[in-house]
Amino acid sequence: MGTRKNARDLTATEKTAFVAAVKALKAQAGGRNYDWFVSTHMQYFAVVNSHRYAHQSPSFLPWHRQYLIEFENALKVHNPAVDLPYWDWTVDRTTTSAPWTSDFLGGNGSGGNGPVTTGPFAGSANWRINVSSSTSTSLRRAMGGTLPSAANVSTVLGVSTYDASPWNSSSGSGMRNRMEGWVSPNIHNSVHVWVGGHMALQDSPNDPVFWLHHANIDRLWSQWQTRWGYDSTRYLPGSGTSGVVDLNEVLQPFTGVRPADVLDHRPRYTYA
């Protein structure tokens, strides 16, 4: 069982190992390499087979949970000791705090919307962007704006109903749409916008911080489950909802994996 740690608590050795594994996956020829993960996120942001899998739907949380598990397993092929770290943006809220240090993910882009200039992902020679909406082959960031606060998170975790009809971006009640961010207090979306650069694009996994951000979203869902229950009745909808991944429908493209299969993550990993 793995333990996912706060990025600010990683040792120098753990930081080096994570960066090396991410780069090894990037350099991997074929298979589910790093760019496969970028392409898959782009593809499943949209409607696939008349279903919304990854975004604007109840399966936003279980789809990304499985996506992170697949990514973490892909890293472990290169180094079994690596676990995904998370970035708690309610605590580390500046452009120079964890994880933006030169020994880990590097800092802000230059000149507001330019390439990252520090750390192991600076410049296309160190980290080449291959699949993107932008012609920039260097990773970009444009940090600024407003990150969610601890009070915002507390409000969302206090919503006991998982999700609500019509099960998309227009759901006015329920926890999921607040967490995803199509309704106030906008948790997940606002962090993508705050980092800016590639994190603002449909190919946002090009920035390795994507995994740390989504590990934190997954951690918050885990906290919600701890408070309101891990059992399958807490996920909605249960069955019979067209265009939406019900409890026992498959989270494509993850063959055979249903929301019911990922609700209890504790046998596989926990958060420290």
């Binding site: 909406s133 971006s169 227009s170 309704v183 106030s184 694009l201 449909q202």
Partner: peptide, 23 residues
């Protein structure tokens, strides 16, 4: 997309996102 005009509201409004302003 359609999003709620406010928390707990059933009233929605149209919003536009794009490949570059995805979130």
């Amino acid at each position: 997309l359609q999003v709620p005009v406010a928390e707990d509201s059933r009233e929605t409004m149209d919003v536009a996102i794009s490949a570059l302003t995805h979130y």
